[in-house]
Amino acid sequence: MSDHPHAAVIHSADAPPDAHANHRRDYFRIFWALGILTIIEIWFATLKIDRRAVAALLVGAAVTKAALVGLYYMHLKYEKRSLLWLAAVPFPLAGLYAAFLMLDAHNIIRAITLPWK
């Protein structure tokens, strides 16, 4: 069985009509949230503040949007925890991997370009 009480509802074709109405309402809420976050992102990109702060704001907004799509539209919120972990664990690891590689970007670029120098 799933960990979430709604899981049985979302996967059942025999779910009561009000459960479907609730899901439809959630779908529209997430749609508006994604639209508003996109507008906020574009506003963040125009801010004349430190670029690192802008980058942090943009990455935060993008991760929030991606999480909303994953949790509500891809129904991870209603799946068993094991499936949620299966999907969620690689992403922070990839982020860490990217961060470490980018910190060393100058050395990597030099190593790549050396044979042609």
Binding site: M1, S2, D3, A7, A8, H11, E79, K80, S82, L83, L86, A87, P90, F91, A94, Y97, A98, L101, M102, A105
Partner: peptide, 30 residues
């Protein structure tokens, strides 16, 4: 995986591998 069908779990595993490909491209860009 609870009530998730084998097809759904299979699609999730495919999507994770596909995400790694995109991740590699984005890391290269970064």
């Amino acid at each position: 995986f609870g009530q998730a069908t084998t097809g759904k779990v299979g699609m999730w595993i495919f999507l994770i591998t596909d995400a790694m490909t995109f991740g590699g491209l984005l890391i290269g860009y970064g």
